[in-house]
């Protein structure tokens, strides 16, 4: 019954503003990242700093990118490891 009333008053159950908001959210992740490449660069440097406490990595080959799937954006990092440390460096 409630469902029926909702449909009458809301015509489409998926209100179009939610679609708008979701699409904007996704597109702005990309916009902001591409407008400010230094943001990804600082992230990269921070990643290297943290991971280097645990393993020796190939800093030049490190790749950090944003990738799209159906309805989310993921941060994909490819970090080649040269060797593992025996103990984590104390931070």
């Amino acid at each position: 019954m409630l469902d029926f009333i909702t449909r009458i008053f809301n015509r489409d159950s998926g209100a179009s503003k939610n679609i708008a908001k979701e699409r904007l959210r996704l597109v702005l992740v990309h916009d902001r990242a591409s407008v400010s490449p230094q943001l990804l660069q600082t992230l990269k440097e921070d990643l290297i700093k943290v991971i280097s406490n645990y393993m020796v990595i190939d800093e030049d080959a490190l790749e950090v990118n944003l990738e799209n799937s159906e309805n989310q954006v993921a941060l994909i990092a490819n970090i080649p490891i040269k060797s593992m440390k025996r103990h984590a460096d104390v931070i």
Binding site: N10, R11, A15, S16, K17, N18, A20, K21, L24, R25, L28
Partner: peptide
């Protein structure tokens, strides 16, 4: 906005 077919103030401020 009331019909859910336009983003409201909170939606836009949120973004």
């Amino acid at each position: 906005v009331a019909a859910g077919d336009m983003m409201n103030i909170d939606d836009i401020i949120d973004i």
